[in-house]
Design a protein around this nucleic acid. Structure first.
Lengths: 138, 138
DNA sequence: ATCCTACAATGGACAATGTCTAAGTCAAGT
DNA sequence: ACTTGACTTAGACATTGTCCATTGTAGGAT
């Protein structure tokens, strides 16, 4: 993902200090951060960056397909920098930890036309839930 | 689901007018309502019911396993009265409409032990996304 | 190198959803 | 019918996300 900035520039993205910092934060830690967590880390590098800019930039990166939104629970959306390899998620019901997983099989093929109700289905997300090793013993 | 009230009473649930109204709203329309939509419909029958009570009651029904929470997107959680037959969801990316679907296959079997990272996996949700017929033509 | 201008950032108000608390109310057992 | 502990209420508060008018600036044009 180190070429993210180059890819974005090539798409005509105007490069600003703020956008660079947001991209660096996402690049730096391959975890699933919330928007406000991204903002907190961005502020550490560029103290005057505003919350609205982080939200806008994350939204743009999602539109460009460079990152993914993950809505695993009721709480804040999380952002997944790993947008270029398809995967699903394993979520701890207790602490909220998220792992990327790669199940076998193709869930898209498992939805017959008769169950699509005329929708044009473009995407499928699989979310496994359970307890992580730490929370299972606690 | 008409015996929901009986089942709840049998479990020692104290029966109040407010709880009865919430249960009736869920029973009446087999759609996926948000908490505030449930509240609006409940107010129509019992004007003095408060928002907190609806939220509390929905949370209790979820704990009791009588309804399901569905967090399909960033917006409000939705409540699914169809808790007793396993199913997954088909969501319109544009208008948020939800349909229950029954795919073939067993996603749980598609997650090998090596991909479980020591989690005790108890549950899997599959969310198909696309455009409903109305939004696809618009 | 400097100037222009459209695009981006700011910050603060606002909106939507959900949670909490203190005080009043009531269902159901005795 | 009384009593009691669970339930409800109203509204303040918290979190997450959006919007807008103003200010700033990247990058091409001169």
């Amino acid at each position: 993902m180190s070429d993210l900035l180059e890819r974005l520039r090539g798409r005509g993205w105007r490069m600003t200090a703020q956008r660079r910092v947001v991209a660096e934060v996402l690049d730096g830690e391959h975890v699933h951060l919330t928007a406000d967590e991204v903002h907190a880390r961005a502020v550490a590098r560029l103290p005057e960056i505003s919350r609205a800019t982080v939200y806008n930039t994350l939204g743009e990166l999602v539109s460009l397909g460079e990152i993914l939104e993950v809505a695993t629970d009721k709480r804040a959306k999380r952002y997944d920098p790993n947008a270029h390899r398809p995967h699903h998620h394993l979520v701890c019901a207790h602490c909220g930890a998220i792992r990327d997983v790669h199940p076998t099989g193709d869930p898209m093929a498992d939805l017959p036309t008769s169950e699509r109700f005329g929708f044009t289905v473009s995407n499928v997300e699989v979310t496994y839930r359970g307890l992580c090793p730490d929370c299972a013993t606690a």
